[in-house]
């Protein structure tokens, strides 16, 4: 009753949006589609929510075929598109009522499911949706997507442009929904959110780079990774980019993340090189790769 995607392709004219994508989302799994703008995430969402037809391949959602049984899918899924798409000139309560009615239910009937989320915006239930803050809009959109008790929930970049505090709260809500048995497919460009999913698919340029648990994906990073610190970040990046043994060098918070071309890298030699380049307070130590490191390695 999850989601099954088999060899799906979709092009817009000359542009290939999705190229032979396959994945399966298990029932009540929290599954992340991780990739930047233009990766093809929204196209996949639109195909699975039956708003668009793929050029090739098959897909089922909650056991229903996206082509033959699209009406059943529409009754069984909740979809929160990336762009805020509620009625701006209806109030919070009117929007929720509207979506409940369309699906032949009432707010009261499924209030349990949305209670945690809806109580946070209930004080503003008479405010027009267009006048809500970003965080409140997001909570209303999620409430509307849930009000008919969907089996599968599609969330297209629900946290883009949202601050870290609201993002954290949003993911806590998703975890609670998952515990209630809802299958969730969520996309995000934030790599730190990937770690919160059961499994993730890394996607770029319409192709899947890798599918696995976040922990396993990080484990696939092919080289020893080092944090390098020096006082002058710009100088450090420039120097390391020109170093003869550099395999990759990326700014990463207060450090640069560095991998070396050689089998065994020589920490002292790099230190000496950086001193010679005029850098100070140099520190080099081994570090653990993150999903973002792995993504960048795969996307190279």
């Amino acid at each position: 009753m999850g989601i099954l995607v088999k060899n799906i392709s979709k092009s817009y004219g000359k542009l290939t949006a999705l190229s032979n994508i396959s994945l399966d989302v298990k029932p009540s799994e929290l599954y992340g589609l991780i990739g930047p703008d233009g990766a093809g995430k929204t196209t996949l969402f639109r195909i699975l929510t039956t708003l668009m037809i793929a050029d090739k391949g098959q897909a089922t959602v909650a056991g229903y075929d996206v082509l033959k049984e699209y009406k059943s899918i529409r009754k069984s899924v909740g979809y929160m598109p990336g762009r805020f798409s509620l009625y701006q000139d209806l109030t919070v309560e009117e929007n929720l009522n509207f979506f409940a009615t369309i699906f032949g239910t009432t707010i009261e009937e499924n209030y349990d499911l949305i209670k945690d989320i809806y109580v946070q915006i209930e004080p503003f239930k008479n405010r027009r949706a267009g006048k809500l803050s970003g965080g409140m809009k997001q909570k209303l959109a999620l409430s509307c997507a849930l009000i008919h008790k969907p089996k599968v929930l599609f969330l297209d970049e629900p946290t883009t442009g949202v601050d870290p505090v609201s993002r954290k709260e949003f993911w806590e809500m998703l975890k609670r929904l998952q515990q209630k048995g809802i299958t969730i497919l969520v996309s995000t460009p934030y790599m730190d959110e990937a770690a919160l999913c059961d499994r993730i698919a890394l996607i770029q340029g319409g192709k899947i780079l890798e599918i696995d648990t976040p922990k396993a994906i990080v484990g696939h990073f092919p080289k020893p990774l080092y944090n390098i610190y020096a006082t002058n970040m710009y100088g450090l990046i420039t120097s390391m980019s020109h170093y003869e043994h550099t395999y990759s060098v990326f700014p990463f918070g207060e450090f640069v993340h560095y991998t070396d071309k050689r089998e065994a890298m020589d920490v002292e030699e790099i230190k000496a090189y950086l001193v010679q380049q005029g850098l100070t307070n140099i520190n080099i130590e081994a570090t653990q790769p993150t999903i973002e490191d792995t993504f960048m390695e795969l996307a190279k």
Partner: peptide
């Protein structure tokens, strides 16, 4: 918010441009 939604590699190249300007 110059880098919202940008892929991780480009996001870093963008910051290298920022460092250079600074």
């Amino acid at each position: 918010e110059p880098t919202g939604g940008v892929d991780p590699i480009t996001r870093r190249q963008f910051w290298e441009l920022i460092y250079k300007a600074a």
